[in-house]
Design a protein around this nucleic acid. Structure first.
Lengths: 193, 193
DNA sequence: CTAATGGTTAGATATTTATCTAATTAGATT
DNA sequence: AATCTAATTAGATAAATATCTAACCATTAG
């Protein structure tokens, strides 16, 4: 599971969201088991166990070794840890929001200028690209709430070491307003095409 | 989520095993949102969004700040990473196997009185042994939820044909409380040495 | 070659979980 | 107070998913 691809993340959680499958995973983490053993210990029929194993296998969470009539299932620990990474950072989770992965072109721009941790490597000179970056940045602010300049800087600081330039740009692009020292995020409709 | 307590791990995965809830989590990871915003962006009704948020909140995955009529939800990133740890190592996953978590002595007692299918062959007369069996039984119940007597019996019935005795013992050992007909599993700390 | 063993596949049914509308609560506004 | 707004709760219905039995496939044993 690379960069928190939504359908895969969802499939992963669905796979683990069932008592029997969690138990199966636990058992094959101890040692290899065949289907009969697994079914017996979980008090399931073999077809049911087989069905669950197929789901786990489809995600690469378990691996199958065939030996005559016996099918030996074991845990694939790498798949698990890789998957768990998908929810380890706030940035990764934010990538699950609807539209977060939407327009390819914008995403490519973000990938070019923003590290996976959410840090800007540089501020684009090109106006259209800068706009994409600023549109992404402005979402770090809540709507309908006032921020002091200090707060604005603190948030921007997380993403770039020159918050002042970004702050001025956000105002220039009418994504943020300033009135008597109070900063407010403006509705998307104020500045979108 | 401390040491991969099975019901909690399961609840966690169930909470995240739904498209809408993953999206919600993504949105509140970006910034605080109120219920209307969330419902609108996900094309759900407010009650539905509210329902999902309650599930996420029950697990501590999101936190709620009330401000007048508005309920602002934000991500609780700690809960997420803590939970993800539960599946990071093979040892942790093996802890999900049925019966995996009991220390040796207790496991021996369990083996003596419980079949591999989880059925009690007899209820120990010895208090210490009975305690081990009851401690194992009480984990079949979720914390923080009320059960009717019928539900309690239904669960106990799976493990022994005299659920009434077991039910009374669970209360006697202070592992379960009864108040006005409602049964609740008590925290381990209430009855552990 | 035939029977037995372990496993999977197919399809019907049962269970669980999401979703909606309607009713209700709590805070803000007039 | 009366009304409005945002949110939650309740309860009914709809959708998704698990489970079983029966049928089937592949391999091994007689």
């Amino acid at each position: 599971m690379d960069q928190a691809d939504f359908p895969t993340v969802l499939r992963f959680f669905k796979a683990l969201a069932h008592e029997s499958r969690l138990r199966l995973l636990g058992m094959v983490a101890e040692r290899a088991h065949n289907v009969q053993e697994l079914a017996a210990r979980l008090d399931l029929t073999e077809p049911t166990a087989s069905h669950h194993l197929a789901i786990l296998r489809g995600l690469g969470l378990v691996t199958l070794r065939v030996e005559g009539n016996n099918h030996w299932y074991t845990l694939n620990p790498d798949a698990l840890t890789q998957a768990a990474r998908a929810v380890l950072s706030r940035e990764q989770v934010a990538g699950l929001a609807p539209g977060a992965n939407a327009p390819d072109r914008e995403q490519a721009i973000l990938r070019n200028f923003v590290t996976p941790e959410g840090v800007l490597t540089q501020i684009p000179v090109n106006r259209k690209k800068r706009r994409v970056i600023l549109a992404w940045l402005v979402r770090k602010f809540d709507l309908g709430r006032a921020y002091s300049e200090l707060e604005v800087n603190k948030i921007l600081q997380k993403h770039h070491n020159d918050p002042a330039t970004l702050r001025r740009d956000l105002i220039g692009y009418k994504m943020v307003s300033r009135q008597s020292g109070e900063y407010r995020r403006l509705e998307d409709s104020e500045w979108q095409p």
